[in-house]
Amino acid sequence: MAALKELQRDLENKANDLNKLQKDISKNHQVRKKYTIQLGENELVLKELDLLNEDANVYKLIGPVLVKQDLAEANANVRKRIEYISAELKRLDGTLQDLEEKQNSKKEAIFKVQQRIQSLQAGKGKA
């Protein structure tokens, strides 16, 4: 009887962990989505900057003011930003994979505990 209770508590804990993991995964997905959108926008900006003339005036909106920027500088900045975002996306992919693996192992563990509970209950029913 005590063993059954122990198992049920274990199951509850594991279910909570799984829930947390799933939440993390969905959060990760959202962040990823945001970064992908930013990456697309930056790539668009880079394309347009490449098409601009050398002497074109480029400004960057910083807070409420437009600050004039060198075209080359702006280009370098955007490139750096794209690099950063790509690296970040890669990192997120890694963590996402990690989390998914953890989720799968948790699911398996939960399944095992459930089976044990069932077998215990079946044994009790016979007895």
């Binding site: 005036n57 909106l61 920027q69």
Partner: peptide, 20 residues
């Protein structure tokens, strides 16, 4: 003044703007 995205603006003429 055309917003290219990510806070970057460029000064363009009407023709260039239509191209963008």
């Amino acid at each position: 003044m055309v917003l290219l995205g990510e806070g970057y603006y460029a000064e363009r003429t009407s023709k260039q703007t239509t191209e963008i």
